[in-house]
Computed example of a mutant assay.
Amino acid sequence: MAISSVRPAMLAGQYYPDDERVLRMQVAKLLAAAVPLEQVAAPKAIIVPHAGYLDSGAIAANAYRTLAGMRERIRRVVLLGPAHQAALHGFAVPAAQAFATPLGEVPLSRSDWLALQARDDVHIDDRLHAIAHSLEVQLPFLQAMFDSFTLVPVLAGDTSGEAAAELLDVLWGGPETLLVISSDLSHYLPYLQAQWIDRSTVEQILELRPDIKHDQACGAALINGLLLAARRHLLQPHLLDLRNSGDTAGDRDRVVGYASIAFCESEPSPHVRH
């Protein structure tokens, strides 16, 4: 394997523009228009959707907008998403050492790549990463928010919340590290039914209840893992946006649910003396 190997931008021109200038302008417009439901400071982790930008870009932008003050701080992004199109037991990292988008290349964290491939539950699979969209669609937003960072891209397959939480703990890092969980919510339900189910799912997340099912979210195991890790690390979730494709793309017969949620360190009580 060549160390310089690069995973190309497979979804450019489909999920987002393939022209650098157009893509940069679209991401900038989405971020400029973002108005999160809550104002939060310096999230440690975010949950964001991963559909095409016309469908879920505005919802994702409400999470990425909260990172505006972290441009100089973040130097490492741990990016996890589900492997939709193929069977996978455990987790997969690519052999490629960089991911490309029309905005440039993002290098992988070499030390994390070496450590992860030594784990029994992590496989090296460029084929899975080549067809996965859940990670790639996040990269232009991350490139717009941060000047320079290394990437830890992980796809999840048949795994548990406990396994995902253990992996997150290993990759947790310090204030230089952002954790990104890429997941959509309910799939292909009528508009009102999707609204009801997605609101229930978000309530579970906000209550840190790690019992999300796969029919509630395609990245259920990863969300459950983050909720378990958030409990241990005393993170507080904040809802930033909750909509579905019926709100953004028009068709309300069969919609996909989208949410953006930030996880921040709990602020100390004002009654506690130091």
Rank of each mutant, 00 (worst) to 15 (best):
A2N: 12
A2K: 13
R7P: 01
P8S: 04
P8E: 07
M10V: 12
L11V: 07
L11H: 15
A12S: 15
Q14W: 13
Y15P: 00
Y16F: 13
R21E: 12
R21T: 13
V22Q: 08
L23P: 00
Q26R: 13
L30K: 00
A32C: 04
A34I: 02
L37Y: 07
Q39C: 07
Q39D: 14
A45C: 07
I47L: 10
I47P: 00
A51N: 03
G52Y: 01
I59A: 08
A60D: 03
Y64D: 03
Y64K: 02
T66L: 00
L67F: 02
A68M: 11
R71P: 01
E72T: 09
V78T: 10
L80R: 02
L80S: 03
H84A: 08
H84Y: 15
Q85A: 13
H89M: 12
V93D: 00
P94N: 04
P94A: 05
Q97M: 13
A98P: 01
A100D: 11
A100L: 05
T101A: 00
T101M: 00
E105F: 09
V106T: 12
P107A: 10
S111I: 10
S111W: 08
W113Y: 10
L116F: 05
A118Q: 14
D121P: 05
H123C: 12
I124W: 06
R127M: 09
I131P: 02
I131F: 09
H133N: 14
H133G: 09
E136K: 05
P140H: 03
F141S: 00
A144D: 14
M145E: 13
F146Q: 00
D147G: 13
F149E: 02
L151A: 07
V154P: 02
A156W: 02
G157E: 05
T159I: 06
S160H: 06
E162W: 07
A163M: 11
A163I: 07
A163E: 14
A165I: 03
A165E: 07
L167T: 05
L171N: 10
L171H: 07
L171I: 06
P175K: 10
L178F: 05
V180N: 00
V180I: 05
V180R: 00
I181M: 08
S182D: 04
S186E: 08
H187T: 05
H187L: 09
Q193T: 11
Q195L: 12
W196M: 12
W196F: 08
I197L: 15
R199W: 10
E203I: 11
I205C: 07
I205E: 01
L206C: 11
D211S: 13
I212N: 05
I212E: 06
K213N: 11
Q216G: 07
Q216M: 13
G219A: 10
A220T: 10
I223A: 03
G225N: 09
L226H: 02
L227A: 02
H233Q: 15
L234I: 09
H238Q: 15
N244Y: 06
S245R: 04
S245C: 11
D247Q: 07
A249Q: 14
G250D: 08
G250C: 10
D251E: 15
V255E: 03
V255I: 09
F263D: 01
E265C: 11
E265W: 09
H271R: 10
H271L: 15
